[in-house]
């Protein structure tokens, strides 16, 4: 039996990797994928707690999170396509109209 903290640590490390990806990357698509990675790290934590509390409700939450991630991916990619049409780049540094 793998102790519960191990899973939580993996989840935390994956989440931090996701944050680092969002902050450090300039490619909008890689930033977006980092967000997906963070969602999955949260999913892993939820599944872990659901297993160790012996409740299956967590599985339902993960299911709903996956649906939200799918919706988010569809809308986000549409936004990226629109940005690309306007500027012909997806470099996050080039979108600085609102920067003061």
């Amino acid at each position: 039996m793998v102790p519960m903290p191990y899973y939580l640590i993996v989840g935390a490390v994956l989440f931090v990797i996701g944050i680092a990806g969002v902050i450090l990357s300039r490619n909008l698509i890689i930033m977006f994928m980092s967000i997906e990675l963070m969602l999955n790290a949260a999913n892993l934590t939820i599944i872990t707690f659901s297993r160790f509390l012996n409740l299956m409700d967590g599985h339902v939450f993960v299911f709903l999170i996956m649906a939200v991630a799918a919706a988010e991916a569809a809308v986000g990619l549409a936004i990226i396509i629109m940005l690309f049409r306007n500027r012909e780049t997806i470099d996050a540094d080039k979108f600085n109209l609102l920067k003061w």
Binding site: T48, R51, A70
Partner: peptide, 27 residues
């Protein structure tokens, strides 16, 4: 794999089918 280890077989299968199969293909 970790999901399956945590007895979340259904959600693990869903992760591969929905995420790896659909969302990332969209990417």
């Amino acid at each position: 794999v970790m999901f399956v280890q945590l007895n979340a077989v259904f959600v693990g299968a869903l992760l591969i089918i929905v995420y790896a199969g659909a969302i990332l293909v969209l990417f």
